[in-house]
Design a protein around this nucleic acid. Structure first.
Lengths: 153, 153
DNA sequence: CCTCAATATTTTGATTATCAAATATTTTTA
DNA sequence: TAAAAATATTTGATAATCAAAATATTGAGG
């Protein structure tokens, strides 16, 4: 038990650190090296299809709308996203990806799929199942935690 | 294959988002609410036992020593860590946790162990082994990636 | 139709984390 | 011993973030 704990803990901690670093480095070396991780995640949250309001995107990213405003200003300046004021309700601002933004989106998606593919490739069916169910458990644990301490606010 | 990909990808993405949020919220609600996540991780990297040099800690955290200097200044001000100049080589600065720092360390450790318990609970010994080896594979994959794109620099 | 509260966003001011480059000190090496 | 290397700190700049204030618009009640 105690040994399992130590091993698992170290594995998980390392995993998180590595993924963060890899995403960062993947960005630096490729095209789109004028994008930070945060910006890629903003692009991800805006998504490929249709427009999203500022509030929707901010909620998805768990940041304030003020923070998002700044982020979108910069992304707009660099040509990855565009704003559009709603005609029906002129308080609302919609954002969507430009073609350049969509390219960046796909690139990041590709990185993710390469990562997953390579992981799954090395696993047997049994290992695959265990991995998925363990990650699900981990996820449930976190969801519960989030509810307890105050949820999405 | 395609289904596994989607499931795993979603699980991993959710997991990262949740963990970041939870760590943040856990800190806010508890004692030690004058600590940021980054600061807790610095405390974690300094560790319970003995002294570590600034360079060692910075390397562990993958940040520059300059960044760490600032972080340690603040942690010292708040009473979580202490500095000590080496007598043998006066260029070197050692840092270690104060009692308050050790308390914070243990609190964070507790959070981690609750997390691990949740995962391991319900697994047979056999499954436990498989989980560990799966995560090790995942880890190896990332390490390889890191080497390929440029390593620790 | 006017006013007031609510909603959506932006702006502002402050803080934290970060890096690279410059500086300071000490040790090692040639 | 003078130059080079190693260790840490300081400085100046940038990005991400929040809370609070400001702006613009809508909708509801009288």
């Amino acid at each position: 038990m105690s040994k399992t704990y130590t091993v698992l803990n170290e594995l998980l901690v390392e995993l998180f650190n590595d993924i963060l670093m890899i995403e960062q480095q993947a960005l630096r070396s490729k095209d789109f090296n004028d994008l930070s991780i945060t910006e890629i995640h903003t692009i991800e949250a805006i998504g490929m299809y249709g427009d999203k309001t500022m509030s929707e995107v901010a909620e998805k990213l768990n940041i304030t709308v003020g923070t998002l405003t700044v982020a979108v200003n910069n992304l707009e300046k660099k040509g990855y996203v565009e704003r559009r004021r709603s005609e029906e309700d002129r308080r609302i601002v919609y954002v969507h990806l430009t073609n350049k933004g969509k390219l960046a989106y796909r690139m990041h998606e590709k990185f993710h799929s390469a990562m997953i593919n390579e992981v799954v490739e090395g696993l047997t069916d049994e290992e695959e199942k265990i991995l998925i169910s363990s990650l699900e458990k981990l996820n449930n644990f976190f969801k519960q935690r989030l509810k307890k301490i105050g949820g999405d606010v």
